[in-house]
Design a protein around this nucleic acid. Structure first.
Length: 587
RNA sequence: CGGAGCGUAGCUCAGCCUGGCUAGAGCACUUGGUUUGGGACCAAGACGUCGCAGGUUCAAAUCCUGUCGCUCCGACCA
């Protein structure tokens, strides 16, 4: 039998949106750090009672954690709407056919979760939605008059991560905001890109997160239009190279630099000479006596298999290969280092004695720094022998030069010359110009003014919503717990009565009601706990404002208001609500 | 997938090397009492298939094999 709620009950129910008693919810704070959590944000998510693990990479958001998550989502939604994007909701369960159509069924097979229905037909759980949204647009958009459009959703994504870790940082299932822009022209597409870039900047700022946009690797797509939004943090999984002089910032995979060291180019000298180097297997070996060849005067020869074909990659001995740059140079992401026996088949020698002198049967890619280099030493493709006096160009037939080296901190910035710095960061967002790759495959075409069929120019834009939440904690905490910004705090105010009854309790109740009526999200710590426990918990959870009501201050007609990261202030009881409203308004 | 480590109460851990009696501590939980301005105290209590399976043994948390799970390091990404 269902009983119908009275209007009064309904109105009370509405209020439960904004207020809560500690004893009526679930906030399982932990005194000790769970052994499973390595980084501080993960520890605090668990300790503050925001999150619990079901199993590796899968988490339940507890009431407080969910409230914070919803705050982030709301900010994302508001800024996407403001930027003119249209919210929709696409299926997480997807037919594999569209993945085959885009060619990503194979390319993304490592991250795709696959399931079967009762008829044994296979389905995939969406790790991203280019295929779905482009299919949609192919059917619904036909004219340049309908462009530009940008569709977004906030939805659970599934990725079969090789190694889920750090709580929400890398999970099998996570919440992502993904947006996809469709434009008629390149210029329009750049505008759409710019709008998202600006929206992202605002989103992270509103979340209280320091995030910087860095140039990102575009992989085989090429071009300049990819930025990652990076939240600086020691525990970040990415390295950012940046310049304090001009503001240049790039993912280490993409970064360029002007390395120190002499220019190797010169006039070729005498013909190369083969010399025995028994037991020399590394750049370092060769740089030591008796040979004493500086690493910068050696050519490092790497054998890769690109689309199963061997290619040679040459670098200065003191440089490291950047595989992302190599992908761009090769025009494919499908490459891997050769196995020893594959290398032997290609060059007739083992690693340690490899070189490219006189090789014409294999494609040779070389780093820019080797262009015209003379007086170089490199392996002779005979185990235990090297060539010296090698001149690139004369003795080594390089097919293509490109920037292939890893930029390092301390090297000079390409634009202003100042030394570059490096720091670790969490990738919280990514904006990417896709071009017509998917629109062509899925036939997302429109007719332009002249009646010509053209593919939509696409862009895609992702924000890891759950990851952003954790990044906020990673950046904003102290020894006592989380320091939430008002914008994402689960509750703005925690009222902490220091006695279970009497005037203390009555005052606390009154403030609770008045603040709630003023539209403030407030939680009342009505537990019958000692003050120390309540103070510790409120700081662990990190409510931005705490209002303590105790006998001592009440005797002076005062309560104590403390901002989480600020000082304690005694305030006349009758001014407390006004003061809290002020603090909330200030943000 | 390769490498390393760990699985004992809700949490943090001891016990294992060197097999043996009823498997322990602190925190948390329940009841009663004393407390109440920075993670209280006393008393009583409840909570364990020692990850799972197999083996060795008179006897296994402890030794062996297998397996599953978790965490960390690498490749992947929001």
């Amino acid at each position: 039998m269902l009983s119908h709620p009275s209007p009064r009950q309904l109105s009370r129910r509405r209020k439960t949106n904004y207020q809560m008693r500690w004893t009526q919810t679930l906030i399982p704070t932990l005194k000790e750090t769970p052994a499973e959590a390595e980084i501080v944000s993960h520890q605090l998510l668990l300790r503050a009672g925001l999150l619990r693990k079901l199993t590796g990479g899968l988490y339940t958001f507890l009431p407080l954690g969910l409230r914070a998550l919803r705050k982030v989502e709301r900010i994302v939604r508001e800024e996407m709407d403001r930027a003119g994007a249209l919210e929709l909701l696409m299926p997480a369960l997807q037919p594999p056919e569209i993945w085959r159509q885009s060619g990503r069924y194979e390319a993304a097979r490592d991250v795709l979760f696959k399931v079967r229905d009762r008829a044994k037909k296979e389905w995939v759980l969406g790790p991203t939605h280019e295929e779905v949204v482009t299919t949609l647009v192919a059917g619904e958009i036909n004219s340049y008059r309908q462009l530009p459009r940008n569709f977004y959703q906030i939805q659970t994504k599934f990725r079969d991560e090789i190694r889920p870790r750090f709580g929400l940082m890398r999970a099998k299932e996570f919440i992502m905001k993904d947006a996809y822009s469709f434009d008629a022209t390149d210029e329009q597409a750049q505008e759409s890109y710019k709008k998202m870039y600006d929206a992202y900047t605002r989103i992270f700022e509103r979340c209280g997160l320091r995030a910087i946009a860095v140039e990102a690797d575009t992989g085989v797509m090429g071009g300049k239009f990819s930025h990652e939004f990076m939240a600086p943090a020691e525990t970040g999984e990415n390295e950012v190279i940046y310049c304090e002089g001009c503001g240049y910032a790039a993912n280490a995979e993409k970064a360029v630099s002007r390395p120190a060291g002499e220019d190797l180019a010169g006039t070729p000298g005498p013909a190369p000479e083969k010399f025995p180097t028994p037991g020399v297997l590394t750049i370092e070996d060769l740089s030591r006596p008796p040979h004493g060849v500086p690493a910068g005067r050696q050519i490092k020869t790497l054998v890769f298999l690109a689309d199963d074909q061997p290619v040679l990659v040459l670098l200065r001995g003191d440089d490291q290969l950047n595989e992302a740059k190599l992908a761009g140079a090769l025009g494919t992401a499908n490459f891997r280092p050769g196995e020893p026996e594959e290398i032997f088949r290609a060059l007739g020698a083992h690693p340690g004695s490899l070189g490219a002198v006189g090789i014409s049967s294999l494609p040779i890619h070389a780093d820019e720094r080797l262009r015209g280099a003379v007086q170089m030493t490199t392996g002779a493709n005979v185990d235990g022998y090297h060539w010296r006096q090698v001149a690139v160009g004369r003795d080594v037939a390089v097919q293509a030069f490109a920037d292939l080296r890893l930029a390092r901190a301390g090297e000079a910035c390409c634009s202003c010359g100042q030394p570059l710095k490096a720091r670790r960061a969490i990738e919280v967002g990514h904006v990417f110009k896709l071009g017509a790759k998917y629109s062509q495959v899925f036939d997302a075409m429109y007719l332009d003014e002249a009646g010509r069929r053209q593919p939509c120019i696409m862009g895609c834009y992702g924000i890891g919503v759950t990851r952003t939440l954790q990044a906020v904690i990673e950046q904003r905490h102290d020894a006592n717990g989380i320091i939430w910004p008002l914008s994402v705090a689960p509750y703005a105010v925690c009222i902490t009565p220091l006695a279970a009854a009497g005037a203390v309790r009555e005052t606390a109740e009154r403030l609770y009601q008045e603040l709630t009526r003023a539209g403030i999200e407030v939680i009342l710590d009505d537990r019958n706990e000692r003050p120390g426990v309540k103070f510790k918990d409120s700081e662990l959870v990190g409510f931005p404002i705490r209002v303590a009501v105790g006998e001592k201050s009440l005797a002076q007609g005062e309560v104590e208001i403390k901002e989480r990261a600020g000082a304690l202030a005694a305030v006349k009881t009758e001014q407390a609500v006004g003061r809290v409203l002020e603090l909330c308004a200030r943000g």
